[in-house]
Design a protein around this nucleic acid. Structure first.
Length: 502
RNA sequence: GGUCCGUUCGUCUAGGGGUUAGGACACGUCCCUUUCACGGAUGAAACACGGGUUCGAUUCCCGUACGGACUACCA
């Protein structure tokens, strides 16, 4: 049987970076096994539905390159892939389960249950309490029929049999055992006719012939219910295998990574910018922060998984061939933004100049710079080894696009002497006619010129650098001069002399 | 509270009954470089604790502690 896995987020807002990792692991597994990777939208909670979230999820997956083989927006033979479009299917199966004796109607209202919880803090609807509640197990047949015919709202609940051991073989954690006395009678079908996650995911996974369920650790406790459902439907022999992923934890402190941590630690925790309706519902994304999707993938892949060995940088092809569920860690992994930055830097260094130039072009344009592709290529060559994020090309290297905004006056004062102005004027005349205006020639000639003037290069070159860039940081001076061109270089030298020669 | 899951340098992790416990990020020092980075070298830094099992446990078992998830007509 060929592998089929799914990523099944619910459209309640921006897709958390942990969700991206779950999608990635599913994707890697599917690709490696020659199987299919599907996207299913779990929108059975009408109250939590957020417009735009579905598009956001799809765009996120596309950005990181995890293209589903089937799913909402991707076609496929097992649709519909949006659960709200499958409502009738769940109702049919829920009633089927009632007939099989593995589920029952319950008429207790949310208010009834809330009142019970008030009275008894740990109240649970289960095999011990259901006999004293209002459901098809306690109602007579005629009472039941009367309520159903009157259209009384009801839910369908799982009927958990007493004294049964539920064994789960988790691919990551080994065998996990639950006793049915600890398993409650979960709601399967809600009063609005929609299924809960538990029902919908079992029916869909069965109908969509899912072979492996790779999902977050938060689902481990409810897997007992899921196993019972497979058995109740008579699908035990085709039940998928489970793999419960460790959580992604906060960078510091306790608990899992939350969307608030982004603002708190000044880093994105979402793949793309999310712009919600309110000011508080806005979050930055990795893409807009200037990450390369390949770097995000590499970073995420290694956050909770490692194939063994010392390799850190993996192409997507390498990830696919090296991936194995058995090598996924059991414990939660802290989100280390410093490591994410390192990956990005590495991927920028390794990227083709043309690719980078294409990515920074729109960034330059929003800053109001209109530059040629050739010039962008020069910027990339100059800045590639010293940036972490894509916008750094423009922001750190702004002086390649416009004139110096601010000089490092401290260094200027340290190096400026009585004859600096004269020296610079002579150097400008020298630069005016030097041929070719090219880095190695410039370097050799200018150094020689400076020496002939009886000055040490160390006294002049820093000033030359500041004249062109304003700062002591940055690319090699003569490379910058070439990128700027002869005319602009001379103009900046003149400007520099004018500024400091008082 | 109950159930379940987990615990190797600060962080991500490799490893696995006998190892100088390996790599990477971050950090320190040095080299390269008349800048900054890149690169190279190097240093500091870990098996939560207590019992077993064993000739020998960081590795296997059991506890304890700590951390986490779940405990909705949310997913």
């Amino acid at each position: 049987m060929s592998v089929r896995v799914r990523f099944a987020p619910s459209p309640t807002g921006a897709l958390h970076i942990g969700g991206v990792r779950t999608a990635l692991y599913n994707y890697l597994f599917a690709r490696q096994q020659g199987g299919k990777f599907l996207l299913r939208i779990e929108d059975t909670d009408q109250n939590r539905f957020v417009p735009g979230a579905e598009d956001y999820i799809i765009e996120s997956l596309k950005w990181v390159g995890l293209i589903p083989d089937e799913g909402v927006g991707f076609g496929g033979d097992y649709g519909p892939y949006r659960q709200s479009d499958r409502k009738a299917i769940y109702q049919k199966y829920a009633l089927d389960l009632v007939e099989r004796g593995h589920a029952y109607y319950a008429f207790d209202t949310p208010e009834d249950l809330e009142a019970l919880r008030q009275k008894e803090a740990n109240f649970t609807y289960n095999q011990f309490t259901r006999s004293s509640l209002v459901n098809s197990l306690t109602l007579s047949e005629s009472e039941l029929r009367a309520r159903l015919e009157a259209g009384t709202p009801y839910v369908v609940r799982l009927k958990v049999e007493p004294d049964v051991e539920i064994r789960i073989r988790d691919l990551i954690r080994g065998e996990v055992v639950f006793h049915s006395s600890e398993v409650d009678d979960k709601v399967l079908l809600k009063a609005d006719g929609m299924p809960t996650y538990h029902l919908a995911n079992i029916i869909d996974d069965h109908l969509m012939e899912i072979t492996h369920v790779i999902r977050g650790e938060e689902w481990l406790p409810s897997t007992a219910h899921h196993v019972l459902l497979y058995q109740g439907f008579g699908w035990a022999d085709t039940m998928p295998q489970f793999a419960h992923l460790p959580l992604i934890l906060k960078p510091v402190g306790n608990g899992k990574l939350s969307k608030r941590d982004g603002a708190k630690f000044g880093m994105p925790v979402f793949p793309l910018d999310w712009v919600g309706a309110t000011e508080e519902d806005r979050f930055p994304g990795f893409r807009e922060a200037g990450f390369l999707p390949q770097a995000v993938v590499n970073f995420l892949a290694l956050l909770g998984w490692h194939p063994g060995g010392d390799q850190e940088l993996f192409s997507i092809e390498e990830l696919i061939s090296a991936f194995s569920i058995e090598h996924i860690s059991k414990s939660g992994a802290r989100f280390d933004f410093e490591k994410a930055k390192w990956f990005n830097q590495k991927y920028i260094q390794a990227s083709a100049p043309e690719y980078l130039a294409g990515l920074i072009k729109p960034l330059a344009e929003t800053k109001g710079y209109s530059v040629s592709a050739a010039f962008l290529l020069q910027v990339v060559a100059l800045m590639k080894e010293r940036v972490t994020f894509l916008p750094d090309f423009i922001e750190q290297g702004y002086y390649l696009f416009e004139r110096v905004r601010e000089y490092d006056t401290e260094t200027v004062q340290k190096k400026w002497t009585a004859n600096t102005a004269v020296l610079f004027s002579d150097m400008m005349r020298f630069l005016e006619q030097i041929e070719p205006f090219e880095a190695t020639n410039l370097e050799a000639s200018v150094k020689q010129f400076v020496q002939e003037q009886g000055v040490k290069p160390g006294d002049v070159l820093p000033l030359l650098r500041i004249a062109l860039a304003g700062t002591m940081k940055g690319p090699a001076v003569f490379d910058m001069a070439v990128a700027l061109g002869r005319e602009e270089t001379l103009a900046r030298l003149q400007l520099f002399v004018n500024t400091f020669n008082r």
